[in-house]
């Protein structure tokens, strides 16, 4: 099972750094949408003629909208640079063609997302804003995938596979598909403010939570097939715990954001944005990205551990 060749940790470290840098990017992106501040800064790569990173402090601080939008763009460029570093790390560490293409996938995803965001600003196009919002969560999922596939643990295949499949893998696949639909519906609501979208998003949430808990249960069941305290058992139990935790946190935040929208803001008309809506909507978006990451993690490992003959 284990790879006799030494595995460099650097590609995985850079990929993890990229993923971590994407967290504030998602937080700021969620804030931009809540505040409707996507056009708060004039220009894209050179706002008002300044190079992005050299934009004067007093101009950044002129309003909350501009502060959030500008730093969203800066974190975007940072994630882009870290993605390049990840690709370079696979080359310098001689991690192989597969690792290179995985890192390259992350770079393409981040670059594409940046271009969509830039075009959204340059063309002042709300439909591109919707696309940018939905892709944001998907790109976060891809960065998670890159970080896992480049990690030492994955590349060394450190965990043992299950003796017999217990149905984790197909359940995780369905969960991932359902979550992608949820992300699309969430983006549709956030950018279209439609009643249909929020209703579908709410019903979708019921399914995702219920199905996600089934996946978590199958993870715990599978962990019992390993020896207590073994790496395999600990991994699956930890995965189940993260999945259960983020699922519950996410529906709770969604319900709170809905309450803030209707009871403390001005409902769907968006005539008043309350502080509670700003906080809880943004947290809902952020934890949504974390849930996507956890589900990608679940999908990848269950696909490997639960498929003795076809492991990745």
């Amino acid at each position: 099972m284990s790879d006799p060749k030494p595995v460099s940790p650097w590609p995985g470290r850079w990929a993890l750094a990229t993923l971590l840098a994407a967290i504030p990017l998602v937080v700021l992106g969620g804030l931009v949408t809540t505040l409707r501040a996507g056009m708060a800064e004039d220009g894209w790569l050179q706002p008002e003629g300044y190079w992005l990173w050299m934009y004067p402090l007093e101009k950044r601080m002129v309003s909350l909208g501009r502060f959030v939008e500008h730093h969203h763009r800066e974190f975007g460029s940072l994630v882009g640079l870290l993605s390049i570093a990840t690709v370079l790390a696979t080359l310098f560490a001689k991690a192989g063609a597969r690792a290179f293409w995985i890192a390259f996938l992350g770079l393409v995803a981040v670059s594409g997302q940046g271009v969509v965001g830039g075009l959204r600003v340059l063309e002042n196009n709300p439909r591109l804003a919707f696309l940018h919002g939905v892709l944001g969560q998907i790109v976060f999922g891809i960065l998670t995938l890159v970080a896992i596939l480049l990690s030492v643990r994955w590349r060394r295949s450190e965990l043992p596979r299950l003796a017999a499949p217990v149905g984790m893998a197909w359940r995780a696949k369905i969960l991932l598909g359902a979550l992608l639909i949820q992300v699309t519906l969430g983006g549709w609501y956030r950018h279209g403010h439609g009643h249909t979208a929020i209703a579908l998003h709410g019903f979708g949430a019921l399914f995702v939570v219920w199905w996600g808990l089934q996946v978590a249960r199958s993870l715990r069941k599978a962990s019992k097939t390993f020896e207590t305290g073994s790496a395999g058992a600990l991994h699956l139990r930890s995965n189940a715990l993260w999945l259960t935790g983020t699922l519950h946190l996410q529906w709770l935040l969604g319900a709170t954001a809905l309450y803030a929208l209707f009871a403390l803001s001005d409902g769907m008309s968006g005539q008043h944005i309350s502080r509670s809506e700003i906080v809880f909507s943004t947290l809902h978006v952020t934890v949504g990205a974390m849930l996507t990451a956890v589900v990608v993690w679940t999908y990848l490992w269950t696909d490997r551990l639960d498929s003795p003959t076809q492991g990745s």
């Binding site: 992608l180 639909i181 519906l185 549709w188 403010h193 439609g194 009643h195 979208a197 409902g267 008309s269």
Partner: peptide
């Protein structure tokens, strides 16, 4: 399902549902 949702949104089916009026 996602394509239907996306298509209906792009067609502007729900854009006016919640605008101030």
């Amino acid at each position: 399902w996602t394509l239907v949702c996306l298509g209906s949104w792009l067609a502007g089916c729900s854009i006016d549902e919640a605008l101030p009026s």
